[in-house]
Amino acid sequence: MRRWPIVAFVTLALGILSGAAAYQQADPRQDQRHAEWHEIAWPFPRDGWPAGRAFRCRGASCGDGIEIYVRPKLGFCNCDRGVADDEEVDRVADLDLLSERFTPIQAGDVISVADMPGRSRAYDLKVTDGARHAAIGIAVSRRCDLLVAVAHGKGDAMRVRRMALQLLGENEMTRWMKAAIEGQ
């Protein structure tokens, strides 16, 4: 008779511990999965600016995949105004590296990336195989220097924008962007 409370307690404790372990090891729900960003080689030929960093997202939240390309353009910004308007984003954000055929979807937004003010703008992009992608051009500045990014993927432009800004907001990327804009 005295053993049954001990057996019941041990059984309950093991059940709770195994349930907690299973909960911690379970896959997150679809809306809680993190993007899986992987750095890839800079895919573009050399031009007047240094190569930057390129990433591809293949996580569940990325849908069919998103790519982003980020690089500094030192000494290329209006020192007084920074990135002042959408036309400047159109001109500097490296969209032309992806395709010459891009069309703005709407007016851009004021943003801040790594404590640098600037703008982002959504585009409809027609890539070389004729497929349509959503693209986001991002240009932010510090003093007379720019940091530009362009992200593209199939599907919704706002999702591409959200995913790109999420990557750019990560601590490692913020540190790299600040160092790159300082020329280090």
Rank of each mutant, 00 (worst) to 15 (best):
A8S: 10
F9I: 15
V10C: 13
G15S: 15
A21C: 10
Y23V: 15
Y23L: 13
Q24G: 11
Q25S: 15
R29C: 11
Q30W: 11
Q30A: 14
Q30G: 00
D31G: 04
R33D: 01
R33L: 05
A35V: 09
E36W: 04
H38T: 15
A41M: 12
W42T: 08
F44E: 07
D47G: 14
G48F: 08
W49H: 13
P50N: 09
A54S: 15
R56M: 13
R56T: 15
G59D: 06
A60P: 02
S61N: 11
G63P: 00
V70C: 01
P72N: 14
K73S: 06
K73V: 02
G75A: 01
C79T: 10
G82I: 06
G82W: 04
V83G: 05
A93G: 02
A93M: 10
D94P: 01
S99C: 04
F102E: 07
P104C: 05
P104T: 07
A107G: 08
G108R: 04
V110P: 10
I111V: 09
I111E: 06
S112I: 12
G118S: 11
R119Y: 07
S120G: 04
R121S: 01
A122W: 04
A122C: 10
A122I: 11
L125G: 08
V127Q: 05
V127Y: 00
A131T: 14
A131V: 11
H133F: 15
A135N: 00
A135I: 12
G137P: 03
A139Q: 07
A139T: 03
S141W: 01
R142F: 11
R143P: 08
R143M: 11
L147N: 00
K154Y: 02
D156T: 07
D156F: 02
M158V: 01
M158G: 02
V160A: 06
R162T: 15
A164T: 13
L167A: 08
L167S: 05
R175A: 14
K178P: 02
G183D: 10
G183A: 11
G183F: 09
Q184C: 08
